[in-house]
């Protein structure tokens, strides 16, 4: 059984659809990429699962099942507790994801104590161990530091350690390297991969970088305009993509085997075709609703 399952998830901001019948599954230990261009709704899926959608966005249909339990049917408190214990987030921008007014240590430890009922001493020991795992020198000192005293790469390592602290079954990584410079990006990606392998955690990796997907993930979901275009294995995608948009996306990726080659955007005709497909889907959806 899959750990996470989305069934026909729909979300809107006002009358505007943000997610259109999104279905996907993440099995325990699976590393799945959520790929799409800006505005494709990939981050929204992560937020919908975590329950942190902006106030303006409403879920208008579908289910979010965690271990078979529908999150939306739960009380807000139960849902919060379940997410807190079983799912964790590696955020996009490490520079803004740590509270500037509080020391680093408590920001990682407190959830273990407050939410999961650990003893403070156990929690601290566990966090020091994790900070070692993410290659932070002198963890005891770092835990007493304030975020502004640490570099961006250090902070992202801390956030990764924090995500793994409660041994969650699923980690949602929301473009975790976009805000870092290129040399640090590589280290952080390798670190996430190593940590994932060691802990066996399922990973939902939100990204627009196909290079990252090929190195890190086993399966992937391609999104456009809030609709799933393709749900496939990474090998399948890179050898023989099913959807025309996927093929165009793949063709648009610059290759290091062809340095100086001209950059190729996704052809407009392909975009129009996908948009037409989505319009047809919306129409069918409306007809369905009217008929009911």
């Amino acid at each position: 059984m899959s750990f996470l399952e989305l069934k026909n998830l729909n979300a809107r901001v006002g009358p505007l659809p943000i997610l259109r019948d999104v279905s996907l599954q993440v099995a325990p230990g699976e590393v799945r990429a959520l790929v799409g261009e800006s505005g494709a709704g990939k981050s929204m899926i992560g937020k919908a699962i975590l329950g942190t959608l902006p106030d303006a966005i409403r879920i208008t249909g579908g289910e979010i099942l965690l271990e078979g339990e529908d999150l939306q049917a739960m009380s807000p408190k139960d849902r919060r507790r379940m997410i807190g214990a079983k799912v964790a987030l590696i955020p996009q921008d490490p520079l803004t994801a740590l509270n500037p007014a509080r020391r680093v240590g408590p920001q990682i430890c407190n959830r273990l104590v407050d939410i999961l009922g650990w003893r403070r001493r156990e929690a601290e020991a566990r966090v020091i161990e994790l900070l070692h795992e993410v290659h932070i020198p002198a963890p005891e000192r770092v835990m007493r530091a304030y975020p502004h005293e640490l570099s961006g790469g250090m902070r992202q390592r801390i956030l990764i350690a924090s995500a793994f602290a409660a041994e969650p079954q699923l980690i949602i990584a929301d473009e975790p390297t976009t805000a870092l410079d290129v040399t640090v990006q590589k280290q952080i990606l390798r670190l996430i991969r190593d940590m994932q392998a060691r802990h066996g955690t399922a990973l939902l990796f939100v990204t627009h970088d196909l290079g990252v997907v090929s190195k890190l993930c086993q399966s992937m979901t391609v999104l456009f305009g809030g609709k799933v275009l393709e749900d496939t294995s990474v090998d399948q995608f890179f050898s023989a993509p099913d959807h025309a948009y996927s093929a165009a996306l793949l063709a648009a990726t610059p290759k290091y085997t062809d340095p100086g080659g001209s950059l190729m955007p996704v052809p407009e005709a392909t975009i129009h075709a996908v948009e037409a497909e989505i319009a047809a889907h919306d129409l069918a959806h409306q007809t369905e609703t009217v008929r009911q």
Binding site: L50, G51, T52, K77, R80, R81, I83, G84, A85, V87, A88, L89, P91, A97, N99, R111, D114, I115, L159
Partner: peptide, 9 residues
Amino acid sequence: TLARTKGYS
């Protein structure tokens, strides 16, 4: 947002 995902009220 991150604190919310940790299960805090």
